[in-house]
Design a protein around this nucleic acid. Structure first.
Length: 144
DNA sequence: CGCTTGACCGGAA
DNA sequence: ATTCCGGCCAAGC
């Protein structure tokens, strides 16, 4: 994983995020799971999340990337509470029709992106099936 | 250089 | 539900 790989990885992240339609959201982890592994990386190792990298990529995303449609696995905005960015993100999402509950959470079952269509995925060499399964994060747990 | 810091995440307690 | 922990990894200091 050298510098070039990293650039490629970031580019992939951006192109993926660009696929998220207006009015829907995705999560850092979901994007992270769709990134193709760099050639020499053993799958088990790669299977680990790269969510943090996605977050970092969003921090300095080009203006044509809808970074605001990426939130955390809890359905919440991840920027520091009360920060400028957090307010902007929420405002943009609400402008797209996304609803926040009183705890600042978005219902991922309702607004969560289902992933790029197979067509696009194939054309862009994305991971499929097991390793890239859409695996929507749950907000409900098994006990309640 | 080494050490700390996050727009993270899932599992365990 | 909430907290904690280990794993992640580029950036900043």
């Amino acid at each position: 994983m050298d510098q070039d790989d990293f650039r490629t990885l970031r580019t992939t992240v951006y192109s993926l995020v660009k696929q998220v339609p207006r009015g829907q959201v995705t999560t850092y982890g979901q994007i992270g799971r769709m990134i193709p592994p760099p050639g020499d990386t053993p799958p088990p190792l790669f299977a680990k999340q790269r969510a943090r990298l996605v977050g970092r990529a969003m921090r300095d995303a080009p203006s044509d990337v809808p970074w605001h449609r990426v939130i955390n696995s809890q359905g919440k905005i991840s920027l520091p509470l009360g920060s400028r960015g957090a307010a902007v993100q929420r405002k943009r999402l609400e402008a797209e029709g996304i609803i926040f509950d009183r705890f600042g959470r978005v219902d991922l079952d309702r607004f969560g992106w289902q992933g790029p269509d197979q067509q696009w995925g194939d054309a862009n060499g994305l991971l499929r099936s097991e390793s890239a399964e859409n695996h929507q994060p749950r907000q409900l747990d098994l006990f309640t």
